[in-house]
Amino acid sequence: MLRQREKTVSWQAGALSIGVHGVLIAILLVSVNWKTKQVATIAEVELWDSLPTLAAPPPPPEPVVVVKEAQKPQPVVKQEPLPKVEEAPVKEPVVDIALEKKLKALEQKKSDDKLKLEESKKLAMLKQEMLKDDQLEKEKLLKDQKQKQQSDAIKRLAQAMLNEDNAAGAAQANAAKSAASAGIIDEFQTKIRNKIRSNVNKSLCGSGNPELKFEIGLQPTGQLNGGPKLIKSSGIAACDSAVERAIMASDPLPLPQDKTLFDQFRNLKLTFRPNDPS
């Protein structure tokens, strides 16, 4: 019984572990992608802001849509002449006011409705004419756009490079920040140690090698949250109260100005060895 159960369990466990690993890998990838994207977008925003001359040109939504327009209607016209042509402007009415007007005019002309093919041909012709008319503009636009795209691409490349630099810089900054935080924590640990030690009267702690432990809670102001809590006594009452007085006499304790680091100092465990060399 036991063995059978163990076998089934291990099979299930294997399956589950594979599944969980898959999920974990997926999460890992997603999170990695998400992170890199986020960093990039953040960096883009920062760059556009910092480079207003580059930010000025972009009314690119129009040409981008026009490109779609130019690409889409062409096959539509060939395959299913009438309805799609009608649909096209309906579906994308906002696209081009000039184009819409022309299509409406076409619809009015179409009111005779004699030959679908002719009309479709006319329509196609019209459309082509329109397209040809537009094409020049569009080509210009396209050229402009390509140039813009190229310049954009260059810019993006530059941006990407800058982003990479920025990302690297941000990573470095983060690393530096955490290192700085660690440094600040160290610094204030030392400051707290020195302040309390200056008040510890070791002449009340006998000639042995006593060790005491206190726990204290701090407010964000550095003031003690209630009295110190004796966790381990030195065995010498006068020594215990001398160290307790030292803690209380050190109130308020020095804390970093960076309030995000306060959590590190909210609760402190203090170990005293008064007769050890300082």
Binding site: R193, I196, S198, S203, L204, K269, L270, T271
Partner: peptide, 17 residues
Amino acid sequence: ANAALEIEISGGGAQQV
């Protein structure tokens, strides 16, 4: 997350109450 910062204090600077 709840780990309290531990500070060891050896010696003493005060001699008198």
